[in-house]
Design a protein around this nucleic acid. Structure first.
Lengths: 267, 267
DNA sequence: GCCCTCCTGG
DNA sequence: CCAGGAGGGC
């Protein structure tokens, strides 16, 4: 089985590229972020004709996540709302506010709980959006903790907007401490991973210089000035079973690409 | 010699298509309308590399005209300003106001005065913009009259936003009297032609159903719901010498086309 | 429908 | 640099 994650920066603009990629790389599950489209306008049929079931949770202009799966998914849920059933952990009003931004969708395939995330960008360290990101990550941890109780076999993936360590930045001296590489973000991520998740990519590749995102500005891709911020985190049993994990840089080389490129894990 | 006119609806957006068309149809002179770019940002070098001299008069967002010529042009002028030298015919303030909209550029090649026009659209009959169009056409007549005194051999071409008669409309019963086919616009055009110009296209093709513009809306091109509003008007000597005139529908069939297609006259 | 500008977001 | 959207023009 193969699961992939890809921030496509508008699924409508990138439709042809995503379809082409799936033809070349027919993963079982593709998790998309930044779809930027309400569910009613999601381009379902091109994916359905390719043999994928489509599960989407989107909004106008911003954010938006979706899961494409060759097999139907069970127990599809969107947002942090499932936390509400265990009331008391997080205030209902806070959850409702967080869920206005469509950043979370989950579903189950063969007892594997797949959680697809678009973590807030955070703008700049110390900004209001940075505080929002940190708050969101705290709620994410509670959400994943409660999901683990019912589904201990999990793949948590998506655009985390966090480079876990210096190997994941093209210029750690300059970028460490900046957004996506600040102490508090990395700590928040580590506290999530401490629930029992491990980085699929790092099971196979330990050296630095492998990136999943390159800024559109300053010709960053041509100069390989990247960040590794798109991740596939696995619970212990799945991590054991992983036999490969790779970043596919090809889509980032196309004309009019997304600024992110897909990451795939294979079991 | 071949002279062509083409409303490209943004020369930057259509750059590749215009270059491709010139490679296939290396006219001596190409008159462009709706370039929608200030002169400093006009994409000169692609045309220069093709062997064309570039003369442009543009503004931000709207209007804008340009002449591309394989030979350098003499006495290039922009706007109605040349009328100012014969003061008294039209008020200087009116001319200055009209010339804020970049709709006129002229130049001389081999004693042929080439005048490239983007006539105001006029919105709807009776509107303020309609009155502007009629006023503009009156000034145009005075402008052409004064140009004829110094350059009796003329080719006046461009997007006239007027269909001269019923043959130039796909549905004359419905469209006659509407904008681009109203009595006053047609009269104003006839008063201009009475200075001594004749329609190059009508020297060769007298039947209706030949169009140069199809609205982007309502799939007008697919259904051939067009208008013939792009014209090449010739002074008597040139009209005698014309050996062909045709509309090239090919560019209108491309993806992301202009809503107009080129018209060419050959001497 | 498809241009343009200007805005916000990344 | 590249998305989406709003607003105006044709």
């Amino acid at each position: 089985m193969k699961i992939a994650t890809w921030n496509v920066n508008s699924v409508r603009t990138r439709l042809e590229q995503v379809i082409d990629w799936l033809r070349q790389t027919p993963v079982d599950v593709l998790c998309l972020q930044e779809t930027k489209v309400v569910d009613a306008d999601f381009p379902r049929s091109p994916f359905e004709h390719l043999g994928y079931y489509v599960y989407a949770s989107g909004q106008k202009s911003y954010n938006g996540v979706a899961i494409l799966s060759q097999q139907p998914l069970q127990d599809v849920s969107t947002g942090f709302a499932p936390l509400l059933v265990e009331s008391g952990i997080v205030e209902a009003e806070l959850l409702a506010a967080l869920d206005e931004q469509k950043r979370v969708i989950a579903g189950t395939l063969d007892r594997v709980r797949i959680v697809n995330l678009y973590v807030p960008n955070g703008a700049a360290v110390g900004s209001e959006k940075y505080e929002y990101k940190l708050g969101w990550l705290k709620v994410l941890r509670e959400y994943l903790r409660s999901q683990l109780l019912v589904s201990p076999v999990m793949c948590v993936c998506g655009d985390f907007n966090i480079a876990p360590d210096e190997r994941d930045l093209h210029d750690p001296d300059k970028l460490t401490g900046q957004i996506m590489a600040s102490e508090l973000e990395r700590q928040a991520l580590q506290e999530i991973l401490a629930l029992g998740f491990a980085d699929a990519f790092r099971k196979f590749i330990t050296e630095g210089g492998h990136y999943s995102w390159w800024d559109y500005r300053t010709a960053a891709f041509r100069r390989n000035l990247g960040w590794r911020i798109d991740h596939l985190y696995l619970s212990p049993q799945l991590y054991q079973q992983a036999i490969a994990c790779w970043i596919d840089p090809a889509p980032r080389k196309l004309p009019k690409p997304s600024d992110h490129t897909p990451v795939v894990v294979e079991f």
